[in-house]
Amino acid sequence: MNKQGTFRSRLGTYGGPVLVILWTLFPVIWILSLSFKPESGINNQKFLPDSFTLENYRTVFKTPLFTSALRNSIFISLIATVLSVMIATVAAYAIARLDFPGKKLILSLALAIAMFPAVSLVGPLFDIWRSIGLYDTWLGLIIPYMSFTLPLSIWTLSAFFREIPWEMEQAAQIDGATPWQAFRKVIVPLAAPGVFTAAILAFFFAWNDFVFGISLTSTDAARPVPAALAFFTGASQFQRPAAAISAAAVVVTIPVVILVLLFQRRIVAGLTAGAVKG
């Protein structure tokens, strides 16, 4: 009885976490394993490679489709993130700090827009973009990316800003600073961690986008990584190189893993902050 009890609690202490880790990492390890399989061994129908090669990584870095997509994705996502976070910071400050009619409406609007089906926007955007020359350009993706990065940032930041000790701002104002100065000199440094978290989350979303990426681009000029993965080509138009796609997939996962490793606590806080009270 007692023995079983300790076994059970041990299972709870170690089994649970191990299970969670297995679940989350298993597909990642699989794709990593695929990326090391040589072209001849890709169909060995085993989890692990029979022999090990780095050839697939050499292939993807020699593929202009991929290298330019990497460049596009990094910059488009970063620009969309920075712009959204800048606009959102100002708005969230007002929402958390000031009392004015319509702020609840703005938050509801942000929530509604964050839930907007991207596919609904794609058709009209395509029609507008092609007539004003934004089709297949960076700006042509940055703008639609803001349709989700901006509401997400407003959401996360309003929640963060509510936790900031605003008395310090008041103290600054008593010392003779204008509200704007108080915001810039006192609150901005305090708010920076929240802003950074919002930026990470927004970046994840922009980095993940597929619908806009395949619909509003058509060449290396703006095609982002997820779209490039879907269009990877082999030695002929009939070949689809699974191993190379896997290698590319691993490469684009590395930034995600690094961000998660560095900012795990911030991301968790950011994800839950906007969603649940408290």
């Binding site: 597909p27 990642v28 597929f210 990584v225 997820p226 879907a230 998660v260 994800l271």
Partner: peptide, 8 residues
């Protein structure tokens, strides 16, 4: 990690 990984 699954959260951050690209859906594609």
């Amino acid at each position: 990690i699954p959260y951050g990984i690209i859906t594609v």
